[in-house]
Simulated assay, not measured.
Amino acid sequence: MKFKNRRGFTVVELLVYLAVIIGILMINLMLIKVVEAGNPSERIFWNSFDSAWNRMIMNAKAEDIYYRVSIRDTDVTFYPMYARRHAGPIRSEHIKVPSSMHVRSIKTLTATDDGFTAPTTVIWLDQEGHVKYDQKIQMGWSGYRVEKR
């Protein structure tokens, strides 16, 4: 029995075709994950900022003190300012800003012992001057929110 001229794919050819397509999709997904991971020094900076912010909140509530937060190109500093009483010295904290980003304008915030500060937006730029992050600091202990652009 002879087969006539076949037009189409065999099962093996379809499986190979699907394997190639799936391989290309997997490579693209891995590349997207790498790009989204971003700069590790920036992740470390945001984790350090979050830790310092939470320590500021706990110290302010426990010790009845307020804080001055200075945000500059090179560093972010949390300065404790004694209000009513203090149990002992609380050190200021300095967090180094990674070289891949800088702040558009220097900001100084004051967080009172009850957590209130003026609502502020800090704009972080990349090395080329494009907006990289919007950091919105809100009143009360609700804290801040960072949005990546």
Rank of each mutant, 00 (worst) to 15 (best):
V12G: 11
T77K: 00
Y82T: 06
D75W: 12
T108Q: 04
T10W: 08
L25N: 12
R6G: 04
W124V: 14
H102Q: 03
D134T: 11
K4L: 15
D126M: 10
F9H: 08
A83K: 07
G115N: 00
V35A: 14
Q135S: 14
S70R: 04
S51M: 00
Q135Y: 14
L31S: 10
R84C: 12
I32W: 05
M58R: 12
K148N: 04
I57Q: 04
H130W: 03
S99D: 02
R85T: 06
M30I: 15
Y82W: 02
R91C: 09
E36S: 08
K33N: 15
T110H: 01
I21P: 05
K132H: 06
W124I: 15
V97K: 01
P80Q: 01
E13K: 02
D134K: 06
L18F: 11
R85H: 02
S70C: 07
R145W: 09
M58W: 05
L15M: 09
V35H: 10
V122Q: 01
K2W: 15
V146C: 12
K107I: 06
A62M: 05
A83E: 09
D50W: 12
M26A: 06
L15P: 03
G115I: 03
F9W: 05
T77A: 08
I95A: 01
L109Y: 03
I90C: 09
A83P: 06
V11P: 00
K148P: 08
S70H: 02
R85K: 00
R85E: 01
R84N: 10
I65A: 01
N39F: 06
K107V: 10
L14R: 13
M58E: 11
F49G: 01
V146G: 04
S92Q: 00
R104W: 12
L125H: 02
T108S: 04
I123C: 09
W46H: 04
A111H: 05
V11M: 12
I21S: 08
T74Q: 13
P89M: 08
T77Y: 10
M26R: 05
N47M: 13
L109W: 03
S51V: 14
E36Q: 11
E147L: 04
Q135L: 13
R145D: 12
Y133H: 05
I32R: 02
G23T: 00
R85N: 06
V131N: 05
K107R: 09
R104M: 14
E36A: 09
W124L: 07
W46E: 04
L25V: 13
A19S: 09
T108K: 06
I57M: 07
V34H: 06
T74F: 15
N28P: 00
M101E: 02
L109R: 01
L14A: 15
H130R: 04
A118T: 13
W53S: 02
I137N: 00
H86D: 07
G23S: 01
S41H: 12
M30S: 15
S92T: 08
L25G: 13
F78N: 08
V131S: 05
A87N: 15
M81Q: 03
G23Q: 05
Y144V: 05
F78W: 10
W46L: 08
V103W: 06
W53T: 07
M58D: 07
T117I: 06
E128D: 13
K148Y: 13
A111V: 04
E63W: 12
A87S: 15
I95Q: 06
G129W: 01
V12E: 08
V35L: 08
